[in-house]
Simulated scan of single mutants.
Amino acid sequence: MAKRLDRRFLDNRLGVVAVEFAFVGPALFLVLFGIICFGLVFGVYNSVQQLAAESARASVSGLSATERDQLAKNYVTKNVGVYGMLDPQKLSVATNSQGGTFQVTLSYDMSASPAFKLYNVLASASPTITRSAAVQNGGY
Rank of each mutant, 00 (worst) to 15 (best):
G25R: 13
G25P: 11
G25L: 12
G25A: 14
P26V: 09
A27F: 15
L28T: 10
L28H: 03
L30A: 13
V31Y: 10
L32G: 07
G34T: 06
I36G: 02
C37V: 06
C37L: 08
F38I: 01
G39K: 10
V41Y: 12
F42K: 07
F42Q: 11
F42W: 14
G43D: 13
V44W: 02
V44E: 11
Y45L: 09
N46I: 11
N46A: 14
V48F: 08
Q49K: 11
Q49R: 11
Q49D: 13
Q50E: 14
L51I: 11
L51D: 03
L51H: 02
A52W: 02
A52P: 04
A52V: 08
A53D: 14
A53I: 08
A53G: 14
A53P: 00
E54Y: 05
E54S: 13
A56C: 10
R57M: 10
R57S: 12
A58P: 09
A58V: 08
A58K: 02
A58N: 08
S59A: 15
S59R: 05
S61R: 12
G62H: 11
G62W: 12
L63C: 01
S64V: 07
A65W: 01
A65Y: 04
A65I: 08
T66M: 08
T66I: 11
T66G: 15
T66P: 00
T66L: 13
E67I: 05
E67K: 12
R68D: 02
R68M: 13
R68S: 08
D69G: 02
D69M: 00
D69I: 00
D69L: 01
Q70L: 12
Q70D: 14
L71M: 10
A72V: 05
K73V: 03
K73W: 01
K73G: 06
N74D: 15
N74H: 04
Y75P: 08
V76H: 01
V76E: 04
V76D: 03
T77I: 02
K78M: 05
K78G: 01
K78P: 00
K78A: 15
N79A: 04
V80I: 15
V80D: 03
V80H: 03
G81T: 04
G81F: 09
G81I: 06
G81N: 09
V82K: 11
Y83F: 15
Y83I: 05
Y83C: 02
G84Y: 03
M85W: 01
L86M: 05
L86P: 03
L86F: 06
L86K: 02
L86R: 02
P88E: 07
Q89A: 15
Q89L: 11
Q89F: 01
L91F: 10
S92Q: 13
V93K: 02
A94L: 09
A94N: 13
T95H: 05
T95W: 06
T95Y: 06
